[in-house]
């Protein structure tokens, strides 16, 4: 079995008066696409935000490649890249400048920044618009900038939070291809989505969250069980 890249243990979190996470545990490994599934409000985004240290847990613990999110948040952030549905970029900077800024802030060595930026620009086929200001880019191009800035420091853990929800069919396909490619490179890919069709096609293992609790976890085929599609299993679980 691959080594655990992300270990979440009995995580709890309350936001305002709302108890969002009720003691969830999960584990995502290197070299796999791990699906974090659930309806809106299930706690997927909060879980991801805790994993990447943007939020602190009320109880429980999270380890990323052996680093605890509470005691070593900067070490965790150095090893994590996050792509969300919000493809916010700095509009007055070019695509290249956007990516360079994040490379520098993520601690890429001075002598390697340009090399790394060029590498991701090529990898994501961005050369044609690399020097264009971000405000003039299409949604798909902006999404590529968002991915590029998340991977420019070559993180071992990649998290995708509903990455295709604002994209057209072509751009969505590119994201899916990228996730598969990253898995091939040995990365731990965590894919949070409510699009179960995508999850079924891509994920090696899934965890289904509902109202802040884990209702199913395991290899995708096992969670689907006897149902024809993962969606049927999902509906049965959340409507119980």
């Amino acid at each position: 079995m691959s080594p655990a890249a992300v270990k979440v243990d009995r995580l709890e979190k309350t936001l305002g008066k709302n108890k969002v996470l009720r003691g969830i545990s999960l584990q995502a490994n290197s070299g796999e696409i791990f699906g974090l599934l659930g309806p809106n409000g299930a706690g997927k985004t909060t879980t991801l935000r805790i994993i990447c240290t943007l939020l602190a847990p009320d109880a429980g613990s999270v380890e990323v490649l052996g680093f605890d999110t509470r005691s070593a948040p900067e070490d965790v952030r150095r090893r994590v890249g996050v792509v969300t549905a919000d493809i916010g970029v700095y509009p007055r900077l070019s695509a290249r400048e956007n990516i360079t800024y994040f490379a520098e802030l993520s601690g890429v060595l001075d002598g390697e920044v340009n090399q790394r930026v060029d590498a991701v620009l090529n990898r994501l086929d961005m050369a044609s618009f690399a020097n264009q200001r971000a405000e003039s880019l299409s949604s798909g191009q902006k999404q590529k900038v968002a991915i590029a800035r998340a991977i420019v420091h070559d993180p071992a853990v990649l998290m995708f939070d509903e990455p295709t929800s604002n994209l057209d069919v072509l751009a969505s396909r590119e994201i899916r291809n990228f996730m598969v490619e990253s898995r091939g490179r040995g990365k731990c890919v965590i894919f949070s989505t409510h699009v179960l069709h995508d999850a079924e096609r891509l994920c090696d293992r899934v965890t289904i969250l509902h109202e802040g609790s884990v209702v199913a976890t395991g290899p995708t085929a096992d969670v689907r069980g006897a149902h024809r599609e993962l969606e049927d299993a999902f509906l049965e679980l959340v409507e119980k």
Partner: peptide, 12 residues
């Protein structure tokens, strides 16, 4: 612009 989250995700 929704760039804040990405910015705070850096180890800086």
């Amino acid at each position: 612009r929704k760039t804040l989250e990405s910015l705070l995700l850096t180890p800086t």
